[in-house]
């Protein structure tokens, strides 16, 4: 884990993202838990499973994962091999952080773009869920935007690491 507890981002950005996405992710998770419980209970007690429990779980899972991405990125908790990098100190460490964040940002920009492309495909074909007929394109758009937000955070982290390197301290 690369998190070292050091603050790298403006507090307001961090709080804003954490609160809005955190609330979203919290609600999605709770909903996922309840959907299964109601589904199973309904199946045994009333012989009526929750219609569309399967697809609701799918949608909630995707929403939870992508709402969580900016959160985990903000905490810099993506798994990495720290065997060599943890020996870096001062400027070298800051430069390493900047480079690593920049590369990650590049990857997330592409992911966000491709999820947008995916969303447009889904919209053009009219894909929906099987039972409840919920359109899939808006979900893919949401995933795309959240991946984009993750990329934005990574850019901000890269800049802040870089500034740290220039100032010569962490």
């Amino acid at each position: 884990m690369a998190g070292d507890g050091t603050r790298h981002l403006p507090v307001r950005l961090e709080r804003g993202v954490s609160l809005s996405l955190g609330l979203g992710a919290a609600i999605f998770l709770l909903a996922m838990m309840l959907v299964t419980t109601v589904d199973v209970a309904g199946r045994y007690l009333f012989a009526t499973p929750l219609p569309g429990a399967f697809e609701l779980t799918q949608l909630l899972l995707a929403a939870t994962v992508f709402a969580g991405l900016p959160l985990v990125t903000l905490k810099e908790e993506h798994v990495s091999v720290t065997l060599l990098s943890e020996r870096l100190k001062g400027r070298a460490a800051a430069l390493h952080g900047a480079l690593s964040s920049a590369l990650s940002a590049a990857v997330f920009i592409v992911v966000a773009r491709q999820l947008g492309v995916q969303a447009m495909r889904l919209a053009s074909y009219g894909d929906t869920t099987s039972l409840l007929r919920i359109p899939m394109a808006p979900l893919a758009w949401t995933m795309s935007v959240l991946a984009g937000l993750t990329a934005f955070i990574l850019v901000a982290l890269a800049v802040s690491h870089l500034l740290g390197a220039i100032r010569g301290r962490r």
Partner: peptide, 23 residues
């Protein structure tokens, strides 16, 4: 390659069986 990336990100997020992970 780009199409594959979008596809994987989308399908992995929607993988029902993986809902056990967060739960």
């Amino acid at each position: 390659a780009l199409a594959m990336l979008g596809q994987i990100a989308y399908q992995t997020g929607l993988n029902y069986e993986l809902s056990v992970v967060p739960l």
